[in-house]
């Protein structure tokens, strides 16, 4: 199921368009920095640090896509996963193979997570390529002012990428659940993206701060912490716990709905 899902995805234009769009983000950031370099001594965020070390170009790109484009990607992939098959009518033919319905749901989810890995991989690869060619690589400055070896920098970049995937995988579980409720793939996608947007609105309202610990987006950008010295894993640890909780709850709901529902599409 998992491999079939991946095979199907790589034969869809959609997948490649998505890859190009996501890959364009780090490329655009690098181009923008070349055309309009930050003043020397500007603040030490990822974008400005990229001009000192190309390693920060993919990190800057991740920070840009994490609140918008990655949730959109997750919504597109997960919202369409079950609902798209239902509206195309292929779901019933998959299920009569025969296969446990849980295998379909889990196989689809695994494929979505794999594709999200690929999406983040594209961003990191393009960012690293463009950033290192333009600004070079070297010792890695941290947000706290100290420096890391280049090897250590790569390890932390990998960690940041995986953390980004984990964050958006939580949203994908929500999307997959929504996808089991409808026969409209686009509807489920929009609903999933809406969940992400509402999360960010709630996250922006200070009066609702009691809610913030339970929102996915509260933790999405916590991979910044990896580039502080010393690294604090507190926020990321909480983040991973919340992501895992979302995955468990919504994947469980998706499995429950699928196993009980009548497949009438």
């Amino acid at each position: 199921m998992f491999r079939v899902e991946l095979g199907k995805s790589f034969r869809r234009w959609r997948t490649w368009v998505l890859a190009v769009v996501l890959g364009a983000v780090p490329a655009l950031i690098v181009v923008a920095l070349v055309l309009n370099p930050p003043p020397p001594g500007a603040g030490g965020d990822f974008i400005n640090l990229a001009t000192r070390n190309g390693l920060f170009a993919p990190l800057a790109a991740l920070a840009v896509v994490q609140p918008f484009l990655l949730p959109l990607t997750a919504g597109l992939l997960s919202g369409d996963a079950i609902a798209g098959e239902a509206s195309a009518g292929t779901l019933r033919y998959l299920l009569v193979r025969p296969v446990r319905r849980s295998a379909v749901v889990l196989g689809k989810y695994a494929a979505i997570v794999a594709l999200l890995c690929a999406a983040v991989g594209v961003i990191v690869a393009v960012g690293l390529l463009a950033g290192s060619l333009t600004f070079g690589l070297g010792e890695v400055p941290t947000l706290s002012g100290s420096t890391l070896s280049l090897g250590e920098g790569f390890v932390r970049l990998l960690g940041a990428g995986l953390y980004a995937v984990a964050g958006v995988a939580g949203l994908a579980a929500v999307g997959l659940f929504i996808s089991t409720l409808t026969e409209s793939g686009p509807g489920a996608t929009v609903a999933t993206v809406a969940v992400a947007i509402i999360g960010q609105i709630l996250g922006a309202l200070a009066s609702l701060d009691f809610l913030h610990p339970y929102l996915l987006n509260t933790y999405w950008l916590a991979f910044f912490e990896l580039f502080r010295s010393p690294v604090s894993f507190d926020l990321m640890g909480q983040g991973l716990t919340v992501f895992a909780a979302y995955v468990a709850v919504f994947l469980g709901l998706a499995l429950t709905v699928m196993s009980r529902r009548d497949v009438l599409s």
Binding site: M1, K8, R11, V99
Partner: peptide
Amino acid sequence: KNLEYFARAAG
């Protein structure tokens, strides 16, 4: 390809 994927999908 459709048949191939349905053949491989499960079981």
